[in-house]
Design a protein around this nucleic acid. Structure first.
Lengths: 121, 121
DNA sequence: TTGACATATTCTCATATAGGAATGTAATCT
DNA sequence: AGATTACATTCCTATATGAGAATATGTCAA
């Protein structure tokens, strides 16, 4: 069995760095395909294909304006990823506290060493 | 060019559903490979291979205890994903507000319709 | 040392890519 | 209608994958 399709869910879709760039770019403002091509310096077919993947999983919405297709990020589709990572937030916050505590303990210890001892380190 | 390696970053590593399950399972408590195999009902080689990927990108840490290998989630490695999704948080919150406003406007409108009109709907 | 247990690696295979090139489709303009 | 602009799709290819099966490695126990 190969890897799950890029269109299987938001996690797989955003695994590709260019697609994350596109999502960030479209988060500020609605943009045409051509604008994405120029701003992110990607080949046009490449952009169209990435947008197709993003659209299939609901990460972007699109509509036509004349000959252009305008795309915008649908932030709600990113939320499940946010929520999944959030379940780990307590853990890394706890880790950060411990790192800080260790740093302070070390500084404390260092302050107790005489200047002469300190020079040897 | 194929897809980026699963070991290229945390985004690619967590794209695989089983790897997310493993990370959630190991978040509570340190566990041996055998415990993962039993609890998540996966084949042992499969678990070992997933753990290898997770370890390569720093999402889990491991150490030996006798013949067992104990693994635990390194939450700090999940943080970049959380931070990336966080940049979109304002957008979906804004969306949620609009949805709520529309719902309220609709309820308001509904309240203005006479009971007789209402029955026809 | 030999055997048993726990985990890791290797091998094979079907499959879904992402990029590049070429082509198709749709809308506008003259 | 014909030409041009703007996107989308198709075809091609090298490659990384995940599952399963088999095997290798490492650790303890008798």
């Amino acid at each position: 069995m190969p890897r799950a399709a890029t269109t299987s869910d938001a996690f797989n879709a955003v695994a590709e760095p260019r697609r994350r760039e596109i999502l960030s770019y479209l988060a500020m403002q609605e943009r045409s395909v051509g604008e994405i091509v120029i701003s992110l310096r990607l080949a046009q077919p490449s952009v169209s294909k990435h947008l197709r993947v993003l659209r299939d999983v609901g990460l972007v919405r699109s509509h036509r304006r004349g000959r252009q297709m305008l795309y915008r990020t649908n932030a709600a589709a990113i939320r499940p990823i946010h929520q999944w990572t959030e379940t780990f937030e307590r853990l890394w916050l706890h880790q950060l506290v411990r790192i800080k505590e260790r740093a302070e303990a070390k500084a404390q210890k260092s302050a107790l060493i005489s200047p002469i001892e300190k020079e040897r380190q």
